[in-house]
């Protein structure tokens, strides 16, 4: 039984936590953009399942990983167009229509998988890319700079989303329509168009989350996400609608899960306590939120459809 606090184990645990955090990060970043514009999307998990399945199927049939990423992205985009249409133009109750998207994604991805694939055959995974120089830093390089391209993309997306939300006209509009759509409208900002675009971007991120999940595993099966998309939505609240906060939440969740697994593998956690230990990421996320006392109010117009009067 080796020690958890040896450098190599620590490095492996951090790397594992980052891998686990990647799909959460993509999905919750996307959800952040949507919620900033005032639209709640509970369908993330369903979108991820669809994009993961179609990404997997692409690799299986075409043996082309980048085509798979593109297909997943397009599936996210298409689902975004659908969700944007029903929420912005049809003013659907957001929480509920998201559940509808989730159920559709859950059922349809399984139906397609059972009918078109059947056996969960393994496919190639995205290759690990070592960042030159950085990857050679002792310990740190191995933990942080030997991941697949989508993992880097997820973390690079954080500053991009920060910039987009805070420094671009579009980002200003997103926040404006999320806080006070009437005021934004009177200033000439199209609430419908802004929300539409925000939702499509958000769902495209969910599509990438599906790709990140399935192409890291190289396998698909029914309900592959196992509620991952719902956790991603929860992490948006944890991160208080800030991309950096959302990243912190994703990393916390991933690292706690990785640590628990590591301790199980080393026998530090006795097998009888295995189930209790598996509660750790969920419990710690709630506790952290209570203790951090992060009282940031939600975007004021969240879940409220906008109609001009």
């Amino acid at each position: 039984m080796s020690d958890f606090f040896t450098a190599s184990i620590l490095v492996a645990t951090i790397a594992s936590g980052i891998r686990l955090a990647t799909p959460y990060l993509f999905a919750s970043l996307g959800e952040t953009i949507g919620q900033k514009s005032g639209v709640l999307n509970l369908g993330v998990d369903g979108v991820m399942l669809l994009s993961a399945f179609f990404g997997y199927w692409t690799v299986l049939e075409r043996d082309n990983l980048w085509l798979a990423v593109a297909v997943s992205l397009v599936v996210g985009l298409v689902m975004g167009l659908i969700y944007a249409t029903i929420t912005v133009f049809f003013h659907a109750t957001q929480g509920i229509s998201g559940i509808g998207i989730f159920l559709f994604g859950l059922g349809f991805s399984e139906l397609m998988f059972r009918r078109q694939v059947g056996t969960p055959l393994p496919v190639d995974k995205l290759p690990k890319i070592e960042i030159p120089l950085l990857a050679d830093i002792p310990w740190l390089g191995e933990a942080l700079f030997q991941h697949n391209p989508l993992t880097y993309a997820a973390f690079l997306a954080v500053p991009v989303v920060v910039f987009m939300l805070n420094k671009t006209t579009f980002g200003m509009n997103v926040r404006a329509v999320g806080e006070n759509p009437q005021a934004a409208d009177s200033l000439g900002v199209s609430v419908a168009r802004t929300r539409f675009i925000a939702i499509v971007i958000g769902n495209t991120f969910a599509g990438l989350a599906g790709a990140a999940l399935v192409l890291e595993l190289g396998i698909f099966q029914q309900n592959l996400t196992n509620g991952l998309g719902f956790i991603a939505v929860a992490l948006v609240y944890f991160g208080a609608w800030r991309p950096v906060g959302v990243m912190t939440g994703s990393l916390l969740y991933g690292l706690v899960a990785a640590t628990v697994l590591q301790w199980k593998a080393q026998g530090i956690i006795p097998r009888g306590a295995s189930d209790i230990a598996s509660m750790a990421p969920a419990v710690l996320t709630i506790l952290a939120l209570i203790l951090l006392a992060n009282r940031v109010p939600a975007p004021a117009a969240l879940t409220r459809p906008f109609a001009r009067h």
Binding site: A12, T13, S16, L20, E216, L217, Q221, N223, Q266
Partner: peptide, 17 residues
């Protein structure tokens, strides 16, 4: 059903030799 967790458990074993 958590395939990702299963994969990371395998990784944890590898890290421990």
């Amino acid at each position: 059903s958590d395939v990702a967790l299963m994969a990371e458990a395998a990784q944890a074993f590898l890290a421990n030799g």
